[in-house]
């Protein structure tokens, strides 16, 4: 599935839905990124998921608009009782999360397997 120039894959693991966007999240793709995340939250809610894990391993980089898209998704998911977590950030994303202090407002896990089951 594509959103803007991003390529998305998704999988369900019990009460955890994992989405994996790939590409650059900049001014040209941030809107599509946020819209696709909103759709994934609806899907996760329909499936009875309690957590949505966003796999950041294939993100080339994410600008402030993409980061703010994460916040909008976090707000929307809260309305559905779903917690968003970030997983597998590559080295660039790990730096961007630290510089923006987004690692203080999202739980970040090194692997999907480390995400605890159940609501966080």
């Amino acid at each position: 599935m594509t959103g803007g120039n991003l390529v998305w894959t998704a999988q369900a693991r019990d009460t955890l839905r994992v989405v994996s966007p790939a590409g650059r999240i900049d001014e040209s793709t941030a809107t599509a990124f946020a819209e696709h995340l909103a759709q994934e939250i609806e899907v996760a809610a329909g499936d009875g998921a309690k957590q949505l894990a966003i796999d950041l391993s294939l993100i080339d980089y994410m600008s402030s608009r993409g980061l703010r898209g994460l916040t909008l998704a976090q707000r929307k998911s809260g309305d559905h009782g779903i917690t968003i977590v970030l997983v597998q950030p590559n080295d660039i994303m790990r730096e961007i999360l630290a510089i923006s202090r987004y690692d203080m407002v999202f739980k970040v896990y090194d692997t999907i397997e480390l995400v605890p089951s159940g609501a966080l």
């Binding site: 402030s64 608009r65 916040t71 510089i99 923006s100 202090r101």
Partner: peptide, 23 residues
């Protein structure tokens, strides 16, 4: 502020972040 502060605890305080300025 940091971007995280500017859209969370300090949202609507009227200021911005280094990250948005660079973008």
């Amino acid at each position: 502020y940091s971007l995280a502060d500017s859209i969370s605890m300090k949202e609507d305080w009227g200021h911005s972040s280094n990250v948005i300025a660079i973008d």
